[in-house]
């Protein structure tokens, strides 16, 4: 698989549109899935996923052929999704760091008091339930959780995608798990 992708990418680097079409076919579901889980909205997910591929194409010269293409592609998609979230509602996601409480977000403070702002009754059996729970995670935990559990990537790969140390990725996954545990227990 990697060898095939490498060969196709070489064609893409020469500017071959058709070769890039093969790349889109190979990765469209995964990239769309990441975007959808990050944003929770089909239209936005499609926009972001398309944009990710277009950026990959226009920046293909910057991609080093010996690296893993999916890592690079998922990084573009994740960053675009996070940008989109920031622009949409900068403070809605309760992700702001509070001065003097290093690493503690408003979210975890609220969670500690067991008073989450979201009053919606969530049915955990439904698909919407899962998506809703993922969306309730602050984006920085959300991306790590999605890559780990939805895409089933290794911690090392996630750390490369998010450009964070493995230790930080672990922390985010732990916090994501904790947040979800609390919500599931209360739901």
């Amino acid at each position: 698989m990697d060898a095939i992708v490498k060969r196709i990418i070489k064609q893409v680097k020469k500017g071959d549109h058709n070769a890039f079409g093969e790349i889109v076919e190979l990765y469209k579901d995964k990239v769309y899935h990441i975007s959808y889980r990050m944003l929770g909205n089909k239209q936005e997910a499609e926009d972001v996923a398309q944009e990710a591929f277009i950026r990959a194409f226009t920046n293909i010269d910057r991609f080093e052929i010996n690296r893993k293409f999916s890592t690079w592609l998922y990084r573009i998609a994740t960053n675009l999704a996070i940008d989109r979230l920031r622009k949409k509602r900068p403070d809605y996601y309760l992700d702001a760091e509070i001065a003097g409480t290093e690493g503690l977000t408003m979210y975890s403070q609220l969670a500690a008091n067991e008073e989450l702002p979201d009053e919606k009754v969530v049915s955990i059996e439904t698909q919407q339930g899962i998506q809703q729970e993922i969306l309730n995670l602050p984006p920085k935990y959300r991306s790590a959780i999605i890559l780990k559990y939805i895409q089933e990537l290794s911690l090392k790969e996630i750390s490369e995608i998010l450009e964070l140390p493995v230790a930080t990725v672990k922390t985010r996954i732990h916090r994501g798990r904790e947040a979800l545990r609390k919500r599931l227990r209360n739901g």
């Binding site: 889109v24 579901d29 277009i54 226009t58 955990i124 899962i130 798990r177 979800l180």
Partner: peptide, 24 residues
């Protein structure tokens, strides 16, 4: 964990590839 793992696969909508190609 198993709750997250139970999330079903999501597929890109129809016509996705051609839409991308048209924008290159």
């Amino acid at each position: 964990e198993s709750f997250l793992q139970s999330a079903p696969e999501v597929r890109a909508p129809n016509g996705f590839t051609s839409k991308v190609m048209a924008q290159l």
